[in-house]
Every structure is written in structure tokens, then in C-alpha cells.
Design a protein around this nucleic acid. Structure first.
Lengths: 211, 211
DNA sequence: GTCTATAAATGGATAGAC
DNA sequence: GTCTATCCATTTATAGAC
């Protein structure tokens, strides 16, 4: 099963770098220095390759999002999973450059995308509940669903948004800014402590910029 | 120039209903009860049709976003332009079901999309400034850019988000909920008056649901 | 302006030799 | 497992008659 893995590795790299939609089966074979016939021996086309890549992605995400998110003390620590999720998405960023397009062209992925979305929502909800229970934040019940939705959107469309703005940033810096953007959403609900927490977040971001 | 307009009208309807990516030049001709050859006489293919449709959309958006946004008293009235923008986007929703994909496949649209994005950002900024000046809201300077970005994302990805969630809602109800989602973003910055404003927004939403 | 017919181009897919 | 050769389907695009 070595060639099979090589096909997946190179395909992932190619899709992330050049965009999935533009690559044909022949392009993939070329990138592998392999004949199209041989590629078809291992995978019946582009679609099964995509699905095999999604298998990998899904597995990772389930590990990340299925893990426990309790037992942390500081506010920022609660959101560490956000950072990890963004990094994982970045590894498979071709899926997220254009989620709607992927779901449309590979209908088999739609419900699996939604399952991951639901897990993300659950994870966000858990963390917010933690923060509320510990008294770090106080969120109006009527505003809570909108806040969760906003967080979920951030997690889903950060790459699309960057693409549309055409900023062409490097991955790590984009990830850091997205984490910041995410955390800033709770600041208004932190009351007195909000100002200090905000300072901390921005300072940390500056440190990361330098490094 | 009558056939030309008919082609654009029917194409828009077809793209909105069935998705732009799936329609070929022949499909468009069929929907028009017209031969492909004739279609090609008026437009050299799908791309010039898309661009002509974007001309229409761009013109409308410039009128909406270029207009003045001052001289309104209530908080909700300030956001009327959001409602109008969403309705206009809905009329050309095939552009927004998958913005990134459109920009990728029609590179000529990219900078025009970005121009509209910039106008939206400006309009949001103006309204926020108005609200601040009148003392309706008090937004930390360091949080303001993140808030604007969230609002912009909402305005850009509401249709994608609905598509991904697969909720398959009807247009008007989706538009109303998106306006609500948009306005809820400022509630945390309204201080004492926030609770009342929130009540008003939710009540208004309920009234619209019944109608 | 509109049609029919057909060419040209692209990408997906398989057969059969090695 | 891997290659070459080839076929098939789809879509774009044009030529020429009406």
C-alpha cells in the first residue's frame, strides 16, 4: 500500500498549492511521475482520492474535537483547541478554500462536513458553558446562539475570507489572527476583566508576530 | 437589444435556481428555446454572460452603498441598508453561494468583488461612527476592527453558511434572520439600553415570522 | 437574427502489453 | 504494478444555410 499513500500525499500537496478544481486526473499522475493508467489502477479517479483524503481529515478532527475540553483555568487556555482545529484545517486547506463548492461537486462529503460542523458547535458550546460556570463571562441567553453561530462562521470561513480579500498571507500568521479574532468575540461579555484580557490577547499576538 | 436582455434574464434565473457551475452554454440555450449557435451570436459563451450579469449587480450595489447613511434616529433604522443589501445579494445569489469559486473561475470579477467588499466595509464603518457619535454604542477602539470584520463576514457568507448547513430555507426568512444576526452583534456594546433594544429586535422578528 | 451541423478541445476511463 | 494507446463523453466554439 505504499503507492497508494504516495498518491494521497502528493495529491494533498497539489490540491493545497494549486487548488483542487483545476487539477485533472492526468495532472495528478504527472505530479507523481506516473501514467494516468497507473493512477487509475489505484484510484478510479479524482473523487475516491478526495474521499480518502477526507477520511484522513475526518479522523484527525474527531480526535481533536472529541477530546475533553475541561479542566483548564485561564480563559485563553480554554481556546487552545481552536488553535489546533485551525492548524488541522490548514493542513487540508483545499477543503475549506471553498466548502460549498466541495460539497456540491462531491455530494458524498456533505453530511460528513456537517457532522464535523456539529462537533465544532458542540465544542464551542462546552467551552462557553465552562467559562460561564466559572464566572469568567456572562452571556445573555438570547445572544448566546448568535455568538456561537458567529464563532462557527469564523472557524468555517476564515480561509475563504482571506482568499476573497486576496491578502495572500502566510499560514501561521493567518492562523494566529484568526484565533485572536475568535477570542475577541467573547471580550464584550467579560465585564470588568475584559479590558485586561484584551490587553493580554493583543500583547501575546505582538509577541508571536516578532517570533 | 431585446434578445440580449432575455438571455440575461433567463440565465440569472437558471443560475440562481440550479447553480451556475452546472449550467453549460447549451443548457442556457435550451432554457431559452434557442439554438446554441444563436446564443453564441449574442454572447461568446458563458463568461461574457456572467460579466454582463455582474454589471447589473454592481450597478445596483453602487447605488445602495454609495447613498448617504446619515440622518436616521433609531438604532434599527441605521441598519436598513443591510436589509436592502441582503435583498440585492439574494437577487443575484448565485454569485454569493460560492464567492471564492466565482472569483477563481472568472478572474475578471475578483477585483470588482473586492471593490464592493470595500464599499460594504465603508458603509458599516459609517453607521458605527454615527451610532458612536450619538452615544448609542460605546465600542473599544481595539475591538472595533474585529467587529467590522464579523459584520462583513456575515454579509458575505450568510448564503454559504445556509448552504453548508443544508437548511434549505426560503429567502425572506433567511434574510430576516441574517439582519437580526447582524444587529445582535452590536447589542453587547449598547450598555444599559442593550436589553431593551434586544427585546425590540426579537419581537420584531417574531412579528415578521407570522406575516 | 436564427438555425443546423460539425469541428475542436478537454477530461474521464479502460484494454491489453510488459 | 506500471505503461502505452485509445476510446468515450461532455462542452466549447464556429461555419454556412435560411
Amino acid at each position: 500500500m505504499k503507492t497508494r499513500d504516495r498518491i494521497l500525499d502528493v495529491s494533498l500537496e497539489l490540491f493545497n498549492a494549486e487548488g483542487e478544481a483545476k487539477q485533472t486526473a492526468v495532472d495528478i499522475a504527472n505530479a507523481l511521475d506516473m501514467s494516468p493508467g497507473n493512477l487509475y489502477y489505484h484510484f478510479k479517479g479524482k473523487e475516491p482520492i478526495i474521499e480518502a483524503l477526507f477520511d484522513r481529515f475526518e479522523e484527525e478532527m474527531q480526535i481533536i474535537l472529541g477530546g475533553s475540553h475541561g479542566a483548564v483555568t485561564s480563559i485563553e487556555d480554554n481556546w487552545i483547541f481552536v488553535y489546533i482545529v485551525l492548524e488541522e484545517i490548514y493542513d487540508f486547506r483545499f477543503f475549506y478554500r471553498n466548502v460549498g463548492d466541495m460539497m456540491e461537486r462531491y455530494p458524498g462529503l456533505a453530511h460528513r462536513f456537517r457532522k464535523i460542523l456539529a462537533m465544532k458547535r458542540q465544542a464551542i458550546d462546552n467551552v462557553l458553558s465552562q467559562l460561564e460556570k466559572r464566572g469568567f463571562v456572562d452571556i445573555d441567553r438570547r445572544l448566546r446562539p448568535a455568538l456561537v453561530q458567529q464563532m462557527l462562521s469564523t472557524l468555517t470561513f476564515w480561509l475563504s475570507h482571506d482568499l476573497i480579500e486576496g491578502s495572500d498571507r502566510d499560514g501561521p500568521s493567518l492562523i494566529h489572527d484568526t484565533v485572536l479574532q475568535f477570542m475577541l468575540l467573547v471580550v464584550p461579555y467579560m465585564g470588568e476583566a475584559g479590558a485586561d484580557a484584551l490587553d493580554g490577547m493583543l500583547e501575546r499576538r505582538r509577541d508571536l508576530m516578532k517570533a
